Amino acid sequence: MLRAEQTTPRRPRFARRATLRRSLRLLGSFRFEQSDPAVFYGGVAADTADLVSDFYRDLTGDSLRGAIVLDVGGGPGYFADEFGRAGARYLPVEPDPSEMHAAGLRVAGAVRGSGMALPFRDDAVEVCISSNVAEHVPHPWVMAGEMLRVTKPGGLMVFSYTVWHGPFGGHETGPWHYLGGEYAARRYRRKHGREPKNRFGRSLFAVRAAEGLRWARETPDDIRILAVFPRYHPHWAWWVVHVPVLRELLVSNLVVVATKRPRSAYGESTPPDATQRGARFGFAPW
Rank of each mutant, 00 (worst) to 15 (best):
T162D: 12
H177P: 03
A103N: 10
G282T: 07
V52M: 10
T60L: 15
M157H: 10
D62K: 14
A18R: 00
A102M: 04
A258G: 06
G73C: 09
W164K: 06
T7H: 13
R57G: 05
G181C: 00
V228F: 12
W215D: 03
Y161G: 04
G155N: 15
M100N: 08
A209R: 01
F281Q: 08
I129F: 15
G87V: 11
A124W: 07
G66W: 15
R199D: 02
R263F: 04
R17M: 09
P262N: 07
A216R: 14
T270H: 06
G66V: 05
R10W: 00
N132F: 09
V44W: 12
R22E: 10
E172F: 02
A265Q: 12
A134G: 06
P92E: 07
A258E: 03
N253E: 05
P153S: 12
S63F: 09
T151E: 11
K152Y: 08
V69A: 14
G61E: 01
N132K: 09
V142E: 14
E5C: 07
G267L: 12
G74S: 11
P285N: 07
G201E: 08
S130A: 13
A184T: 01
R190L: 09
E99S: 13
A18Q: 13
A279I: 04
D81R: 15
L254E: 05
W215M: 07
I68A: 15
E172V: 07
G43C: 00
F283I: 04
L213W: 00
L91S: 12
L179Q: 10
L59T: 03
V52A: 10
W238T: 02
V107Y: 15
P76R: 13
Y90H: 07
H233F: 11
R106D: 02
W238N: 04
L179N: 05
F205K: 00
S131E: 04
V257A: 12
L250S: 08
F30D: 03
R217Y: 05
N253A: 07
D62N: 09
D123A: 15
A210Y: 01
L148Q: 11
A4V: 07
Y183I: 10
Y183D: 05
H192F: 13
R16W: 04
G77S: 02
L51A: 11
R202F: 02
A103K: 08
R231Q: 03
W215I: 05
R190T: 04
L27R: 13
L204H: 02
G166I: 04
P138H: 14
V142N: 12
V240F: 00
A49I: 01
M116L: 10
A206I: 05
L105H: 15
A18Y: 00
V255K: 00
L148Y: 10
G73A: 07
T48H: 15
A209F: 00
H101G: 04
H101Q: 09
L59A: 05
A210Q: 11
A184R: 14
I68M: 15
A110E: 05
P244F: 06
R57S: 09
R277N: 06
P262E: 03
D71L: 13
V72S: 09
P230M: 09
G115L: 01
P272E: 08
R25S: 07
A15V: 03
D81L: 10
F83S: 01
G61S: 10
R10C: 03
V111L: 14
